[in-house]
Design a protein around this nucleic acid. Sequence first.
DNA 1: ATAACGTCCGAACGGTCGGTCTCTATCCGG
DNA 2: CCGGATAGAGACCGACCGTTCGGACGTTAT
Lengths: 194, 194
Amino acid sequence: MGARHTRSAIVARGLDVASMEGLGGLTIGRLAHDLAISKSGLLGHFGSKQSLQLAVLDAAADVFRHEVWDRVADQPAGLPRLRATCEAWVSYLERRVFPGGCFFTAVTSEFDDRHGPVRDGVARLARRWNRSLRADAERAAADLPAGTDPDQLVYELSSLMLGLNYALQMWDDECAPERTRRAVHRLLGPPAAT
Amino acid sequence: MGARHTRSAIVARGLDVASMEGLGGLTIGRLAHDLAISKSGLLGHFGSKQSLQLAVLDAAADVFRHEVWDRVADQPAGLPRLRATCEAWVSYLERRVFPGGCFFTAVTSEFDDRHGPVRDGVARLARRWNRSLRADAERAAADLPAGTDPDQLVYELSSLMLGLNYALQMWDDECAPERTRRAVHRLLGPPAAT
DNA sequence: ATAACGTCCGAACGGTCGGTCTCTATCCGG
DNA sequence: CCGGATAGAGACCGACCGTTCGGACGTTAT
């Protein structure tokens, strides 16, 4: 079996572990044990734990991109895509794509007051997604009640996603996705009938 | 120096450390070093790390209660107290009472998918505060537009507080408190003029 | 056949973890 | 003045951390 396969298996497993235990809780020894390989064999693929963390972070970003952004890329920019993005986001959380809840919420609260490449990577991703959201919100403002502030809109929508993740992770609250949708509809109007 | 004093000093220092590093990042050795006492001297007051964690959690709950709930206890139940609670909550986050952001947000995302006394303690506190919020929301529903769902209201308000903590902690976003207030006012109406 | 390479292992490194042990200094009631 | 309780020191334990290193394999190219 090639190194590519081994490496991606490590990252895949690391993704699951890190979404539950955080990127810090991801330990070389445990990961090696789970995959029935040696610690040194594992670390050989990355060089250091930090490189492993960054690789896992990248993989998580790929998953999130695939689960949310790729699904709304064909929507018209502005309000329609903003609505679709929110729905995809809710669905991503509802389906519990990561067993430990939203990967980035967990990692953010772990690294938000640290320095270094991991925190920088998380911030870069968050900033990028925030910009995308904000761009659609700006266009959408024209289709929403006068005086709608795009930044305020993005802020409230993001907060709702944080709340949904919390409700699902802490309480297994089955009503939370529906509640989130209702709140989104109140901000953006009812979902477009397809 | 009495044991009481030493113990409370340990908890106080642990509060600061844990709000930044999480309850898991709170290590006996480091805490003892910070306070210039021995590990055994420290551990003698608690018996185990878990007891220390629970003591710190209790202390954090006292702080939060003092910073939020005690300040609104004299308000009339229902909408006025709900408004006051939200404002106190925003202020608590804005003033960065804990250097690492909201203690309970951090601890929740750390323990939400574990078992044990610490997670139970966090859940107990969250449930209690949620109930208080919900009770006022129920009363407030009469003073709000018809069809207002108290659970939905509590859900959205809580999400906004999560969002505020995120914005402050991750981005040092100075506008976030004001944005949160604006969103709260949209849900609860403008703040009562005093 | 042989040399080189990629892949992975097993052992070991220094360090930190939570926790236990023994010992001493101090205080307080009789 | 004494004797027990107690706070705390400090050495130490086994487990685990991330990391390094030499070498054992199988494949591939020469």
